[in-house]
Computed example of a mutant assay.
Amino acid sequence: MSLNSLRPILELLVVSALVFAGHMLLFQFVFSGRDAHFLYTIPQLYGFFVLCSVVILSILIRMKQKNIDSVGNTFMLLTCIKMVLAYVLLHPILAATHSEVAAEKTNFFVIFALFLTIETTVAIRLLNRN
């Protein structure tokens, strides 16, 4: 893979790092202590979603090089697989009874939506580049 083809992954990592830093600062200063009882820490969630996104984007980049007509279907399949994995992670949170469970659910869904948005944007850009 050339350096230009890896640009979407680099962009993903930069945007993820910036949002992660902002998220951590938010929980450090504004919501101090609310994440003490979270089942998954914020770095664990970001790590999971960054790993999933890098895998998805790597496969999409490779798929674009081989057969651009399959990129959209591949994206949908990989996103569905990621959603199943995310639900497996989310299930214990849904069953939790601690006092901050609503904040933890919101935190999880915000991170999930963020990475879904990033992946969708990059997939659209990959399909538009010919």
Results as ranks from 00 to 15, higher is better:
residue 45 L to G: 03
residue 49 F to M: 06
residue 45 L to P: 02
residue 127 L to E: 05
residue 69 D to I: 01
residue 61 I to E: 05
residue 49 F to D: 00
residue 12 L to Q: 07
residue 68 I to G: 04
residue 74 T to F: 07
residue 79 T to G: 08
residue 106 T to G: 15
residue 11 E to T: 13
residue 62 R to P: 00
residue 64 K to D: 01
residue 77 L to K: 14
residue 61 I to R: 03
residue 120 T to I: 13
residue 88 V to E: 13
residue 116 L to S: 10
residue 43 P to W: 06
residue 130 N to I: 15
residue 115 F to P: 00
residue 115 F to D: 00
residue 97 T to M: 03
residue 54 V to D: 06
residue 15 V to I: 13
residue 67 N to Q: 08
residue 1 M to E: 09
residue 35 D to L: 05
residue 61 I to H: 03
residue 46 Y to C: 02
residue 126 L to Q: 05
residue 118 I to S: 00
residue 33 G to E: 04
residue 75 F to I: 02
residue 90 L to M: 12
residue 107 N to W: 04
residue 94 L to R: 03
residue 68 I to K: 12
residue 64 K to N: 02
residue 103 A to H: 05
residue 11 E to H: 13
residue 42 I to A: 03
residue 127 L to I: 10
residue 60 L to H: 03
residue 12 L to K: 08
residue 104 E to H: 04
residue 84 V to H: 00
residue 118 I to H: 01
residue 100 E to V: 06
residue 107 N to E: 11
residue 29 F to G: 04
residue 21 A to Y: 13
residue 116 L to V: 04
residue 61 I to S: 09
residue 77 L to R: 14
residue 125 R to A: 13
residue 71 V to C: 02
residue 78 L to K: 01
residue 74 T to S: 11
residue 76 M to S: 07
residue 4 N to M: 15
residue 42 I to H: 04
residue 118 I to T: 02
residue 100 E to A: 14
residue 98 H to E: 01
residue 50 V to Q: 07
residue 88 V to R: 14
residue 83 M to D: 07
residue 68 I to H: 08
residue 76 M to W: 05
residue 108 F to V: 00
residue 104 E to G: 07
residue 80 C to N: 10
residue 54 V to A: 15
residue 117 T to N: 09
residue 78 L to C: 04
residue 100 E to K: 08
residue 14 V to W: 10
residue 112 F to M: 14
residue 128 N to Y: 15
residue 125 R to L: 14
residue 115 F to E: 00
residue 85 L to E: 09
residue 83 M to A: 15
residue 130 N to D: 15
residue 44 Q to S: 10
residue 112 F to S: 08
residue 49 F to E: 00
residue 129 R to G: 02
residue 30 V to T: 11
residue 34 R to Q: 14
residue 28 Q to L: 12
residue 15 V to H: 12
residue 116 L to I: 04
residue 84 V to M: 07
residue 62 R to H: 09
residue 51 L to M: 10
residue 88 V to L: 15
residue 51 L to Q: 03
residue 128 N to T: 13
residue 72 G to N: 07
residue 95 A to H: 06
residue 108 F to E: 01
residue 10 L to S: 13
residue 39 L to K: 07
residue 53 S to K: 03
residue 101 V to F: 02
residue 126 L to Y: 07
residue 5 S to M: 12
residue 38 F to R: 05
residue 9 I to T: 13
residue 18 L to F: 14
residue 12 L to T: 07
residue 94 L to Q: 09
residue 84 V to P: 01
